[in-house]
Simulated scan of single mutants.
Amino acid sequence: MALHTLDQLQTLTQRALEKAGASAVQAAPTARALVAAEAQGLASHGLSRVPMYAGHIQAGRVIGNAQPRIQAERAGAVLVDAGNGFAFPACELAVKEAIARAKNCGIAIGAVCNSHHFGAAAYHLEAVAAAGLVGLAFGNSPAAMPAAGGKRAIFGTNPIAAVFPRQGAKPVTIDLSLSEVARGKLMVAAKKGEPIPLGWALDAQGNPTTDPAKGLEGSMLPAGGTKGAMLALIVELLVTALTGSQFGAEADSFFVKEGNQPKLGQVFIAIDPGALAGSATYVERVEALICAMLVDDGVRVPGYRRFDLADQATSQGIEVTEATLAPVRAIAG
């Protein structure tokens, strides 16, 4: 595998998306997000998604020249309509608005409707932490998990992310899907022809499987059983009932080219620590807990592995397999 700079990958990815029919408004932030995921070691949310995204533009599932716009707003709340474009430009606007409004109101919510796959949830919170705010992110996705006690996939893997800024250090960053693993890991395993562990997925008949292709046709198992399914329900309601977005069960799979416009929802919450117990108290409490955690050998601050990989990728470049890059180059022409 050859080394590539992040700028090279950004240029290639943006060109591929534009060749597929995306405007610069849509392609540039989407490419940034995909390359950032690749740099952080999140291959399932990185360049492997480019052919899927390009196919969705070509099939009309994504509007390539969509312009995100504010649909509704109050002092501490804003709803951004993604216009059935990619999620990333709309999420950028929603997060920017949430940050500005939280600084005035103490807390603010930026929500997105008529959206698409929003990648690694924590990516959207980097700007929140950089502004010294606590951030939360939620999003739904096409149905992949059953409700508690059910057999039919109705919820997506519905990721949750949180960031807690630190003084003089990178933020605590937590990012997890509510399935046992992210569905994108099955996509990567299927492309490589590798098996998956038992406990990740069920086939279409509801049987445990180690075949990622059968898992993609079936359903994912929730993390923590019933508790994971209940958390998925919370996310589903937050990002659909508040935004008017479609349920995961109403959105066709991302892993096929043809299908409907997913019209999914995302919610971002920004909180100013200074509005509550105060910034000094916040910093002291965060550092006290991190110090207590790190007393035990083997404990890592959540998110720091991603930061280390991203720093390394920035300074040294990043290795990407030819199997991943070849389809992107083909689309880019």
Rank of each mutant, 00 (worst) to 15 (best):
P197V: 11
I290H: 13
A59W: 00
Q246P: 09
N140L: 11
A98G: 06
W200R: 02
T240L: 00
L178V: 10
P68Q: 11
E284T: 13
V299F: 08
G206A: 09
Q8F: 08
Q205S: 14
L221W: 06
A75T: 08
L176N: 04
A288P: 03
A66C: 09
S179F: 14
A31Q: 03
G248S: 08
G46S: 02
C291K: 13
E217S: 10
E126D: 13
A127Y: 02
A102L: 07
E236S: 10
E284W: 09
E319L: 03
A94L: 14
S177F: 10
A131L: 07
A87L: 05
T324Q: 08
G278Q: 01
G168T: 01
H124S: 01
S141I: 05
V286T: 01
L233M: 15
P327Q: 03
V328Q: 01
E258T: 04
G265Q: 11
S279I: 05
I109N: 04
I234M: 12
D272I: 02
G333F: 14
K103G: 09
V134S: 01
K151C: 13
A22D: 06
G156Q: 07
A37C: 12
Q71W: 15
Q10P: 09
Q26V: 00
V80K: 01
L136Y: 06
A310C: 12
L186N: 10
M145H: 07
T173G: 04
V95L: 12
P165E: 04
L176G: 03
T210W: 05
V80G: 00
A280V: 11
A75L: 07
D311V: 07
V80S: 03
T324F: 10
V328K: 00
R329N: 10
L186K: 11
A22W: 02
P146V: 14
A129I: 03
N84D: 10
K191I: 10
M187H: 15
L233C: 09
M220D: 06
A277R: 15
G55R: 00
P327T: 03
N114P: 09
V181F: 07
A249I: 12
K263A: 07
P327I: 02
S23M: 07
S48H: 06
E38Q: 07
M293K: 06
N158G: 02
V112Q: 09
A31G: 03
D175K: 05
E180N: 11
M293V: 02
Q14L: 12
A332L: 05
H56C: 00
N207T: 12
P195H: 11
R32V: 06
G64M: 01
L238H: 02
A130Y: 08
G149Y: 15
V163E: 02
I63R: 01
V188Q: 13
L216E: 04
I174P: 01
A120V: 13
P302W: 04
S219V: 11
K263D: 04
L136Q: 03
S179T: 13
P51R: 04
A20V: 04
G41R: 08
G199S: 15
L186M: 15
G168I: 02
V62P: 01
M293T: 08
L325T: 09
P273T: 05
G119C: 11
T210M: 15
A229F: 11
R166Q: 15
R74G: 14
A72S: 10
T243W: 00
